[in-house]
């Protein structure tokens, strides 16, 4: 068995994990299941990043999405449901039309993709990306880098302000 076949099998495995768990997120009637579905989606996408030679991004995905965002969402699920509200259910509505709409969106996207000639500057050679990304962030992307810090500061001030309990 050659390596390309093996890598294909591994790719399809992760692709299946990603999509199946994303479907769980969407179709599960329990918020907890949805959150765990999201966990596997994030893992699957991180694995796809590795396939694409984006090692730093894969690590970032795990640290921030799984370690941060998902935990926050789980907190949201847990904190907002007290014991008397045990049936962590989310009613879905208009399922049939939305499934049709989803298929239509997917169909249009794939149809458009099939007839598109994407830009092609030649494939990038696989190599470690961390140092190069660091240089880019400090050079070409210095302004977005700084603006992102302001954005995080605003979010920090705002989130703290909103949840703080203080007699006013």
């Amino acid at each position: 068995m050659d390596t390309s076949l093996l890598s294909q099998i591994v790719f399809y495995f992760f692709a299946a994990v990603t999509l199946a768990s994303a479907a769980v997120v969407v179709f599960s009637r329990s918020l907890i299941y949805s959150a765990f579905g999201l966990l596997f989606t994030f893992f699957g996408v991180a694995a796809l990043y590795v396939f694409l030679g984006a090692d730093f991004l894969a690590a970032t995905q795990l640290v921030i999405y799984v370690g941060g965002i998902l935990i926050l969402l789980l907190f949201g699920v847990m904190l907002t449901h007290k014991l008397y509200d045990l049936n962590l259910k989310t009613e879905t509505f208009q399922v049939a039309p939305s499934v049709l709409l989803m298929l239509a969106v997917f169909g249009v996207l794939v149809l458009a993709m099939m007839q598109t000639a994407w830009y092609n500057a030649g494939p990038r050679q696989p190599e470690p990306t961390t140092a190069a990304i660091g240089t880019l962030l400090m050079k070409d992307f210095i302004l977005p880098f700084e603006v992102a810090s302001v954005l995080l500061l605003i979010a920090l001030i705002g989130a703290a302000m909103i949840v703080r309990r203080r007699a006013e």
Binding site: F141, P144, V150, L151, I154, A155, G158, A159, M161
Partner: peptide, 19 residues
């Protein structure tokens, strides 16, 4: 990229101001 970041800075700030 700059457009997206600036847009989100405006949006996130506005969400908090609304609430």
């Amino acid at each position: 990229l700059m457009l997206f970041l600036a847009l989100e800075t405006v949006s996130v700030g506005s969400y908090i101001m609304v609430g």
